[in-house]
Structure formats: structure tokens, C-alpha cells
């Protein structure tokens, strides 16, 4: 039953692409897995790609927000990429602003942005 979201490592960056609808358990499992992986590998940056996600409710938004705060506590920067227009609109209407989150149009832009941040 429990599907895990694969976390890939590329140099100093962890890459996560969420490909299907997140249920609560998977989301929490993902949070745990990502933090562990970060600890094991001493990665300095994370890109989370949400291109295939067609909705985000307040729970998933909270998990994402928490992941970002926790990562920054562990010294890693997070970029969220590929948020769909419909998802962005519903998040804003829900009142979830996801402030202080780095975003980019797609994975490629996200990696560029992250590399620039890490060099600075």
C-alpha cells in the first residue's frame, strides 16, 4: 500500500518529482525520507517538482511548508518547481501564500536558480 516518493541525488542537490496525488501518509513519509536523505548525504539543496500535481489542499501545503522550514534548519535550500496555474490560484484563494519559498517554472529553471543561490 505504501508507495514511497523516490528521491534522487545529483551532486549537492536532491531531486524529487512528485508524480501522483499525495495522500496524507505518503506526504508524511516523504517528509521523513527527505530529511533522512539530507542528513545521510549532506546535500545543500533540494528541488521538488510538482508539475504533475493538479491540486494541493491545506494539509499537503502544510507538509510542504514544514519540509522547507526543516530543510533550512538543516542548512539546505529548497526550490519548488512546476506549480500549475490552477494549483497556484486555489492555494492563494485558500489563503496559503507559501511565503519565503523559492519557486521556478520547471525543473531546469529550478536547478539553475538553486545553483546560483548555493554559489552566492
Amino acid at each position: 500500500m505504501n508507495v514511497r516518493i523516490p528521491i534522487l541525488k545529483l551532486d549537492e542537490v536532491l531531486i524529487v518529482s512528485i508524480q501522483w496525488e499525495l495522500d496524507d501518509q505518503t506526504a508524511i513519509q516523504f517528509q521523513e525520507d527527505l530529511l533522512n536523505k539530507m542528513h545521510e548525504t549532506t546535500a545543500r539543496g533540494v528541488v521538488i517538482d510538482l508539475t504533475s500535481i493538479d491540486f494541493i489542499d491545506s494539509f499537503i501545503a502544510k507538509v510542504l511548508g514544514d519540509v522547507i522550514s526543516m530543510s533550512s534548519l538543516m542548512g539546505a535550500k529548497v526550490v519548488i518547481t512546476g506549480i500549475q496555474p490552477a494549483v497556484a490560484i486555489t492555494l492563494i484563494e485558500l489563503g496559503i501564500r507559501l511565503e519565503n519559498v523559492m519557486t521556478a517554472l520547471d525543473l531546469e529553471n529550478g536547478l539553475t536558480k538553486l545553483r546560483r543561490e548555493l554559489e552566492a
Binding site: I83, A88, I89, L91, I92, E93, T103, L105, D106, N109
Partner: peptide, 12 residues
Amino acid sequence: IQAADAVRLVGA
């Protein structure tokens, strides 16, 4: 402001 916030979320 909402529109600008949403634009930030999609990455621009």
C-alpha cells in the same frame, strides 16, 4: 496582490 502572489508560486 493575490495575482502577484500566484505568479510567484508558479515560479515567476
